[in-house]
Every structure is written in C-alpha cells, then in structure tokens.
Amino acid sequence: MQYIIVGIGGQGILFSSKVLGKIAIDRGLSVAGSEVHGMAQRGGSVISHFKIGEYKSPLVQVGEADILVAFDQNEAVRNLQYLRKGGTLVVNVHDEKAFENASLRSYIEARGIDVRSLKGYDLLKKHMGGNFLFLNVLLLGAMSGAGIGDFSYDEVAKAVKDLSPSKFEEDNMKVLELGREATHKK
C-alpha cells in the first residue's frame, strides 16, 4: 500500500505519517517513507511519501499511490498524478467550486479516482474554535472512518492516543470522531 500525503508546511502533516507508521510497525509490517524538513516546511508545498510492504525505496512513483491524503485542495490537484488508476483521494476542501472544473472532472473520471472530501476548516471552526492544527487528526478520522486504506478506525484511534501529548489527547480523540462522522462520498 502506497500513500502520498500533501499539504502546506505548518499544517502538521508529519504527524499523519507517524501515526500510520506506528500502526504498521505494531503489526510487524515493513514501512518506508520520506518527509520534508527545513526551508520547504515554512508554509510551502510539502509532500510525504509512505509505503507499507516490501519496498526498498522511500519514494512513491508517479501513478502508483493507492491513496492521496490532501490537507489542501490545491495541493491535491497539483499532486493528483501520483494516484494510480482507481486510487482514492481524501481531501480537505475549502472551495468546492474548483471540483466542478471540467478538465479536472474528466481526469478524475478517466482515472477512476474515488474522491472523498470534507470541509475541514468549517468543521474545526464550528467544533474546535478554529484551531486548524487538528486537520491532521481530522483527516485520519475521516480516512479510517470511511474504511479507506489498511487501517481500521480503532487502530488509528489507538495510535493517535499513544502519540498524542497528554494535553491534546482528549481534543484529538474528539476531532478523530468528528472526522469519522464527516466523510461523505462526493
């Protein structure tokens, strides 16, 4: 299983691959991934590669990702070529109109991409006082809650709990549940 996680530096995307990694290793699986650190982290486009299984390299090739998790819809579109045919996109949407673009729709259709969107900013504004640092946990909740990927919601919940600093644990659990409830097929 190959994942690509994209977003904007500062959105906390590294935490997501940490959670997936923890679950995989607890199951005794081999993992390899690649992260962005340093200057590129400062508000720019960031991309994490994450592979579970017998791979040598830490990078996902274009057209081979099973799942693309996007913290930002523009980054989702910019990196859509990573998804294999029939892959799944989990995306935080802030402007739904963009997905009405005819070229984008025909690409998604031609590649048979399953798009699962959620309005993360609205949800966090409504339920978490607009603390958008919870986007990572929200997306993990949405993904596992919708049965996307290798991991069950319960496994993700346990890993998030284990990796959360104690002062964020309760909030993280709440946001995870929000994510689970929110996923809808677009």
Binding site: R42, G44, N74, V77, Q81, N101, S103, Y107, A110, R111
Partner: peptide, 25 residues
C-alpha cells in the same frame, strides 16, 4: 504518457494552481 495527463495539466492551469513557495510563518 497516459493520455489523461493532459487533462490534469489543463485543470491545474485553468484553476491557476501553482506550487506554494516557502514563506515566513
């Protein structure tokens, strides 16, 4: 190259999506 690659390129162009440059927080 997969023929649909052109569609994605058009979408990115039409939506005016560019890579975000790093910037001060």
């Amino acid at each position: 190259e997969a023929p649909e690659t052109e569609m994605l390129k058009s979408a990115i162009q039409e939506l005016g999506i560019t890579p975000r440059k790093p910037m001060l927080c």
